[in-house]
Design a protein around this nucleic acid. Sequence first.
DNA 1: CCATGATTGTATGGAATCATACAATCAGAG
DNA 2: CTCTGATTGTATGATTCCATACAATCATGG
Lengths: 195, 195
Amino acid sequence: MAITNATSPKRVATGNPAHELDAPPWLRVESTLMATADAIRAAYDERLAPLGLTLSLASLLSYIGEFGPINQTRAAEHLDQGRAVTGTQVDRLQALGLVERQPDPDDRRVWMLAITELGATLAASIVDVDQVLRAELRAGISRSERQALAGLLVRLQKNLHRSMSAPSSSPQQTSPQQTSPQQTSPQQTSQGATT
Amino acid sequence: MAITNATSPKRVATGNPAHELDAPPWLRVESTLMATADAIRAAYDERLAPLGLTLSLASLLSYIGEFGPINQTRAAEHLDQGRAVTGTQVDRLQALGLVERQPDPDDRRVWMLAITELGATLAASIVDVDQVLRAELRAGISRSERQALAGLLVRLQKNLHRSMSAPSSSPQQTSPQQTSPQQTSPQQTSQGATT
DNA sequence: CCATGATTGTATGGAATCATACAATCAGAG
DNA sequence: CTCTGATTGTATGATTCCATACAATCATGG
């Protein structure tokens, strides 16, 4: 577990420095956050296993199902992954008969990804799994609390984004995000996919 | 990560829609959480790179440095990793001259891991990096907010823990805990990341 | 029409981690 | 002491992902 993170109960034991309690050598909230994220991912993977999917695959499938046929690059961007991995995942979904690769009449380089009927059925199951798990997850946590949590997370991300180095030459500097509140951000509709 | 959520950080490069930073909080908290965790890890890896370390290695090194000589199994448990991976990481730290493997006079199977002087020096740098990054991360976020965040995360983990580890046949649990529903939950998977 | 640059999907190698299997060793029961 | 069962560290294979390189293809300027 975390080095000294709060979450980990048993410290004390090996009798050691006291600055331990409030000055965990390492991360604190940050490590708890990462640990929680890992746990969530694991939980999703566990629940989705019966469907023969992992969180990644389920996410991709759901995305394809929700937003009509799209090309791999866009799907990759949306899932925040590389195109290569996405291509591999599509291979698998295709092998399972869950999605189809349709040629794009306007661009011979691209494959338009479309969900199949079987895929749609499975996607529905995914939504179920997602709702159930999310409900369990949120037990005892009010909506306002969740919103506060999300707000904090977003602020954390902004701070992070600000201190990360620019990825490449890309002219766009850390995106001056003042992005006004109302964005068009497509996706995120209701969906239920996995979180 | 999440199926349809937005929030994904590290987009940047290929200049594309900025729907990321303004991450609508009313979205899936879960995915925002996972995205944030990924971003944090990436930020640490980036800052630690100049030291020739990754967050995992830095965490292990710091742990060894803080808690006297310990064996690999205990270190692995603490970092919530497998013994195998930990062994490999120790190999690397040892190759870099940051830690030593000392034989345990009482048990010929184990190696006691101890930090070297060089390792201690580096560990100090790690602490610096950590403090700087954490400060940036927390900019604009009050202590009470962080505490609230941590509290929520812990509750999330508890909920997760409650619904995880099902009836899987293999009874092998990590250590003797008799899974009493009670709290006490020993090392719940917490942690993950490192540190 | 042709040349240069960008984009799409894929192949490849590398990194990190897990789960499993294993030899060496320890701990206890008899 | 001896046998059986744990435990430690390591080896191995499988997964998943990234980053890079590449061929095919588009887009644009002359």
